[in-house]
């Protein structure tokens, strides 16, 4: 068997996600954003819906999502992606509209847009990457930063007395009737990524059936912001982030678990 035999399509077990561009990712090595992008693009490709998909990128590390996702995409102001997506979904009711947002974007500056978009039950998918920090601006405290966790704006650790407790957005929005599906996933191992992809697929299927908001939280890492190596970050995430933000479905087919 020579090389050409080996790379025949029928022997292929893994390839670059088709809907990702060839642009080098701007993310730090080990960052979960790239995997979350891949999974989303794989689902859109596998469902054959790219011509009917419009993405909404946030302000945050994934502001450049449009450089990597080979789809039509509009980049929203910080926190306003759900409002941007609302209008697109209303004007184009048969399209697949999704937002891709960080925790600062979705759970701090954009809280009002998140809650009201969910409450109206807009027919969209929200992919919410929660890394417990403001990655893009250099590691400041996010609304999701864990108690005691250090960041550049909570250098002595988050003090819940003055800074509040980390906010659990997915539980919060799951209580709104407009949300049809709410789940918390992670993408740091193959096993977790496969599960997350299934959840993303389910979310886009919900859009097809016009079921309202599908809300997918991806608990992720930020090794740069956390000042850890990628491996340490993942271990720390499993031990601490998952303890406060437990993985799993919170609401499925309109019913709370």
């Amino acid at each position: 068997m020579n090389v050409l035999d080996i790379i025949k399509p029928e022997n292929q077990v893994f390839c670059k996600t088709k809907l990702m561009t060839d642009t080098t990712l701007s993310y730090c090595p080990g960052c979960g954003h790239g995997t979350a992008h891949n999974l989303t693009m794989e689902v859109i490709d596998e469902m054959g819906i790219v011509a009917d998909t419009i993405g909404v990128a946030p302000v945050g590390c994934s502001v450049l999502a449009y450089d990597f996702m080979n789809i039509d995409i509009t980049q929203a102001a910080h926190g306003r992606a759900p409002a941007v997506a609302t209008a697109i979904a209303r004007c184009w009711p048969d399209k697949y509209v999704f937002t891709y947002q960080g925790d600062g974007d979705l759970a701090a500056i954009g809280t009002a847009e998140t809650i009201h978009t969910c409450n109206r039950g807009e027919n969209i998918v929200i992919i919410f990457v929660n890394n417990g920090i403001y990655g893009m601006t250099g590691g400041q405290m996010a609304p999701t930063t864990l108690e005691g966790m250090q960041s550049s704006t909570s250098p002595y650790g988050r003090d819940s007395k003055t800074m509040g407790m980390p906010i659990k957005m997915t539980e919060l929005v799951a209580n709104l009737p407009g949300v049809y599906y709410a789940t918390r996933q992670s993408v740091h191992t193959h096993k977790h990524a496969r599960k997350a992809k299934k959840a993303i697929r389910k979310a886009f299927e919900n859009t097809r059936l016009k079921q309202g908001v599908s809300f997918i939280e991806i608990v992720s890492n930020c090794n740069s912001g956390w000042k850890m190596t990628p491996l340490e970050a993942n271990e720390w995430m499993e031990e601490h982030m998952f303890a406060y933000f437990p993985l799993g479905d919170i609401k499925v087919n309109g019913k709370l678990k």
Partner: peptide, 26 residues
């Protein structure tokens, strides 16, 4: 025509941004 009461002027203008991104008269 789509008419929607937004949760704030901030949301409203960003809805305008969304619809305008797709070429709609908004």
């Amino acid at each position: 025509m789509v008419v929607l009461q937004a949760e704030s002027e901030i949301a409203a203008i960003n809805m305008v941004y969304g619809a305008a991104s797709t070429g709609k008269m908004v």
